[in-house]
Amino acid sequence: MLQEVWKKKGVREAVASYLFMAPTIIVMGIFLIIPIVYAIFLSFNRVRVLGDLSYKWSGLNNFIRIAGDERVWIALQNTAEYVAIVVPIQTVLALILALVLNSQIKGKNWFRIIFFLPTVTSSAVLTLIFMWIYNRNGLLNNFLDFLHLPTYNWLGDPAVALKSIMLMNIWSTAPFFMVIYLAALQDIPISLYEAATIDGASGWEKFFYITLPLLKPVTFFIVAMGVIGTFQLFDQSYIFSGGSGGPNNSTLTVVLLIYQYAFKSLDMGYAAALALMLAGVIMLATLVQRTFFKEN
């Protein structure tokens, strides 16, 4: 009987698949999925975690509180603006850098290493350097001044504070995606380009009809990870505002709020509800992208 079942190709394939997935399912199940399920449970409760642990079922109260919380909306708005600007720029920049560094140019190995430097530099060092570049009499303003362009109070002025963080973020994450594009470019068979050359295709045509379509799955990955990463912006805004999200909420992000509730006021129930809300928003954004990047 069992032997009969085993002979079916589908069953064998399913067993093999789950064996391939097993390490992932076990490790992720214990260290990520259980905590997330726990967070979902928390989001429907009033929780006291410190001292004597206690839960009180509160239904949808935490979610209702989100709807009425002005700071959440400001944070979402900041984050959405951030995503809309950072993701396209860093994706395109990463692609351009990868294309250039994949071509037969002299010294490309050196450029590859130099362009990667921002990704390996530690965040504490980045912060100091950017303080030094961004301050009112800093490098950037001196440079702008030299070109007779208007200067800004990059860190103090709320109208530009978020933009300063955006610049820094693009600068430090573009190399990350550049490397992934570089890897993806290796998987495009040279024979395709050769055939296109014989057919008399121009460089641009090859790019639009061969390279871009074949990079589609990886581009989906890069855009989706870009969206997830930027929606979860925390470090930079925490460092720049000292954790307050100011001035006047201009650098407030959803994850900064979550952090404030989870660790500062120990309001785990509300923090969990916010986290789920954010996950929902990111999921929506990812679903929209999927329609653009439909597979097959």
Partner: peptide, 16 residues
Amino acid sequence: PIIVTQFNNQFISALI
């Protein structure tokens, strides 16, 4: 801690 966050957030705004 809650008060500090809100104060710092807005005081700088008034300062600038």
